[in-house]
């Protein structure tokens, strides 16, 4: 096991270095409200792509894909996870262009939904989006504190406080501009580290041939590509990931932060390609862990079980840096995203000036960071909350996105489609399905139907609502959304 003090010191050095880059970069430019929340038109294609990858690929890629590889169906489940994670990013290739075309002065997804649909659906989407983002952040903190406790015995509060403290410092100071540049640095370091960890682990266990032989002998079911449960997992994970990512304000911020529509479309395409091998490499650790007999009811930490098993301590420190950078690049995005949602909405509902809004943005960033540190250090089982957040996303994203394209879709139709999808998803949700069954409905708990069912109902209901509606939304109305805040920001 690694030394706890040394591990924490390495984490501090990695975080201090990236924080210094973030603060230095933010100091160079103007520190306006726009730089804090929007950074409009400032990010090159590479920065946008690196930032998207850094934002969506958190420490969870060291936990969930390996767990899927070890416990939910081996290689098929990992492949499904990898491809499923790419789908939402591919969806943004056309959606980003549409958003930038109809709402060039926009700042947030809630700004869009309020202007496009009205207050009721806005409040619903606001709640779903903020709930998802906070659960994501809390899960990241919980995951990394558990991982560092496992490999080095670092107390969870220490890990949470160090990561939360550094990320808060540069995000509160430099806002989105700092988040974009630190995401880029963190991704540029994390990608080679993950490759090195995978190649190093393979080297230590005798290469791909030896790994294949061990898995084929000990756990051959993990190498089949036709395991029905694994295929089902690979299919429903697409819908679980899709809705949640579409309602991630951090992703929306990057749509406007990119320098051009062409570069943002390419950046989403490149990001979609990038996440596939990353998740595959991380997920293979689960297959290796299961074949080597390391997993004993703790498949969630398979990646780190392999690291502990095959790496000498000094190499395991590289994985600590990897985990910390993955969390930091995700956490800064979520902190800034929640602060931006709150501040943008405050600007709409009040006549607060730029200085007040800047203070609010920084205060919200601090509050969310504090809450994430406190929750993350507790080691709660946040998985159920995560599934619930994913369900809310799956039920909501169809009317939300199709509202950009279907002029006849109204607020009542959007709400009905979301609530219909949510009802179906909840009926199959573990813990709820039993109650529904007692009412006489033939359902049993199934994540497949939670995500596929809720998405399907929501999509069909959205299309039906648009077909029967007689209203016609004029998309030109979105053209002026955000203009007041843009004016205040750039003053």
């Amino acid at each position: 096991m690694l030394d706890a003090t040394l591990t924490l010191a390495v984490a501090v050095v990695a975080l201090a270095a990236t924080s210094a880059v973030g603060v230095w970069y933010a100091r160079r430019g103007e520190r306006s409200l726009d730089a804090l929340l929007t950074a409009r038109g400032s990010a090159s294609e590479g920065t946008t792509a690196a930032s998207i990858v850094g934002s969506v690929m958190g420490a969870w890629i060291l936990l969930s894909p390996a767990e899927a590889g070890a416990a939910y169906g081996g290689l098929t489940a990992v492949l499904g996870y990898a491809l499923g994670s790419a789908v939402p990013l591919l969806l943004f290739v056309p959606v980003a262009r549409r958003v930038r075309t109809v709402m060039p002065d926009g700042h947030s997804l809630t700004e869009y939904v309020r202007a496009r649909f009205g207050t009721a659906f806005y409040l619903f989407v606001l709640a779903v989006s903020v709930f998802y983002m906070f659960v994501f952040l809390a899960a990241e903190m919980t995951g990394v504190t558990a991982a560092l406790a496992l490999v080095a015995g670092v107390p969870p509060w220490a890990t949470a406080a160090v990561i939360g403290g550094f990320v808060l410092a540069y995000t509160a100071y430099g806002g989105l501009v700092a988040s974009l540049v630190t995401d880029t640095v963190q991704t540029a370091v994390a990608l080679p580290l993950l490759v090195a960890a995978a190649v190093g682990a393979l080297w230590q266990v005798g290469g791909t041939g030896a790994v294949h032989a061990t898995v084929a002998r000990e756990t051959p079911q993990l190498l089949t590509l036709t395991n029905p449960a694994a295929v089902a997992f690979g299919f429903y994970v697409v819908f679980a990931v899709l809705g949640a990512n579409v309602l991630h304000q951090g992703v929306w911020q990057r749509v406007w932060a990119a320098e051009s529509t062409t570069s943002v479309r390419r950046a989403f395409g490149v990001s979609a390609v990038a996440v596939v091998p990353l998740i595959l490499l991380a997920g293979l650790f689960g297959v290796v862990a299961a074949a080597r007999g390391l997993v004993d009811g703790n498949a969630g930490i398979s990646f780190f079980l392999v690291v502990n098993d095959v790496f000498p301590p000094w190499l395991a420190l590289g994985v600590v840096v990897l985990a910390v950078l993955l969390v930091a690049s995700t956490a800064d995005t979520v902190l800034n995203a929640i602060a931006s949602v709150v501040t943008v909405d405050l600007a709409e509902f009040s006549d607060a000036g730029g200085a007040t809004l800047t203070r609010v943005a920084r205060a919200v960033t601090g509050l969310v960071a504090l809450a994430a540190v406190v929750v993350g250090a507790q080691g709660y089982d946040v998985l159920t909350l995560f599934f619930l957040a994913d369900l809310l996303g799956a039920a909501t994203f169809a009317p939300f996105v199709l509202g950009l394209y279907l002029p006849s879709l109204g607020e009542r139709g959007a709400l009905a489609a979301s609530l219909g999808g949510l009802a179906v998803g909840l009926a199959f949700f573990p813990g709820v399905a039993g109650l529904v069954r007692e009412l006489g409905l033939p359902v049993s708990a199934s994540f497949f139907w939670v995500f596929v069912g809720s998405t399907a109902v929501s999509v069909v209901a959205t299309l039906l609502a648009a077909a029967v509606s007689e209203g016609e939304y004029d998309f030109r109305a979105l053209g002026g959304v955000g203009a007041r805040l843009t004016e205040v920001s750039e003053r």
Partner: peptide, 30 residues
């Protein structure tokens, strides 16, 4: 069941793709 060759291709293909994406991102930075 995936063959040893297929498994190796999956692993090394993932490594190569990750490095390619990294190179592309760095080349399009400004």
């Amino acid at each position: 069941m995936i063959s040893a060759l297929g498994f190796a291709a999956l692993v090394w293909g993932s490594v190569a793709l990750t490095l390619f994406v990294l190179g592309y991102v760095l080349a399009t930075l400004r």
